[in-house]
Nucleic acid binder design. Structure first.
Length: 298
DNA sequence: CGTTACCTGAAA
DNA sequence: TTTCAGGTAACG
């Protein structure tokens, strides 16, 4: 009756954040913020900044647009500044009529001038709100998005080349590529037939090309399926998310690979639970020969 | 480069 | 009761 049980496995990555952005953008564009309330116990949200400061900066501002970069939601304000919200692990942002009952784990509310609220809930309080003088302040530290139409295969390869870190760790690093999280990374590596612990620079040119296309495909499919989370509030039709229909390996440990039947394996790569098919995802054969042992500096 | 802390609830 | 989950910043 109170909707779905809170499920902290639905961690927002690029497709989930983009789904939220698309849903909220037409609802908030042109609206003026009339109030901001934050639960004082939700410390990481403001990184210690006083709520009064945030309120002074937001109340009275009109929202020009709602954008997204990586996993950040970017509210463009009418004074040229940008309000950046990051959902981290368990954050949710939903649009509700004023007076609607609180969301589970509701931590903050942004009141709009049309009688609606943006309700921020966050079970684990990892989410963040920051005010920036420009969008560049947010985006400067982020790598390109795999779904960016301007990202060429050669540019994608250049990020991986020469790196000794596991390719999964490189893909998860938002400074290298923005938007992938643990779920979509495992799915992309599976789709590309690449084992997650392969040192990024050891991938063949062909494998990098497959990974380039796989990253785009899994993210685009995630968006097309409206992500895995937040569906119960964003979809007026009541349609559910479809992520379970395309997840091939994530959290399928021990279950048969849909292609070859081999049980999906689980390991830890880059400090994260990692799922892969030991048969379909083969270790890269390193193209080393002459000069073997020579190390790249940096 | 890898590891840990942050925080809370579910699962083991 | 302990472990685990995962995005990111801080730290070694």
């Amino acid at each position: 009756m109170a909707g779905r049980r809170f499920d902290n496995r639905d961690v927002p990555e690029l497709p989930e954040v983009e789904t939220i952005r698309r849903d909220l953008a037409p609802l908030v564009a042109g609206r003026t913020i009339t109030g901001v309330e934050v639960d004082p116990g939700t410390l990481p949200l403001l990184a210690g900044a006083p709520i009064e400061t945030l309120r002074a900066n937001l109340v009275g501002r009109t929202i020009r647009s709602l954008g997204r970069r990586g996993k950040y939601l970017l509210f463009e304000l009418d004074d040229g500044r940008w309000f950046a919200a990051h959902l981290r692990m368990t954050g949710r942002l939903v649009w509700r009529e004023r007076g609607a009952p609180p969301e589970p784990y509701e931590r903050a509310v942004i009141q709009l001038d049309d009688g609606h609220d943006l309700r921020w809930s966050d079970l684990r309080k990892f989410g963040t709100w920051r005010l920036h003088a420009s969008a560049e302040e947010v985006t400067a530290k982020l790598g390109p998005e795999p779904i960016d139409a301007g990202l060429t295969e050669a540019q994608f390869r250049r990020v991986l080349e020469g790196r000794r870190a596991p390719v999964k760790a490189v893909l998860l690093d938002q400074r290298r590529f923005a938007g992938l999280g643990n779920i979509y990374v495992d799915e992309a590596l599976y789709a590309a037939g690449v084992r997650p612990d392969t040192p990024a620079g050891d991938l063949s040119r062909a494998a990098m090309g497959r990974l380039y296309r796989a990253c785009r495909e899994v993210l685009e499919r995630g968006i097309a399926h409206r992500g895995a989370s937040f569906r119960d509030y964003v979809d007026g039709q009541g349609n559910e998310g479809q992520q379970h229909m395309f997840v091939q390996v994530f959290r399928r440990t021990g279950k048969p690979c849909y292609v070859c039947g081999t049980p999906i394996a689980r390991s830890i790569v880059g400090g994260r639970a990692t799922h892969y098919c030991p048969r379909c995802q083969r270790p890269a054969r390193r193209p080393r020969r002459a000069g073997e042992g020579a190390r790249r500096a940096g």
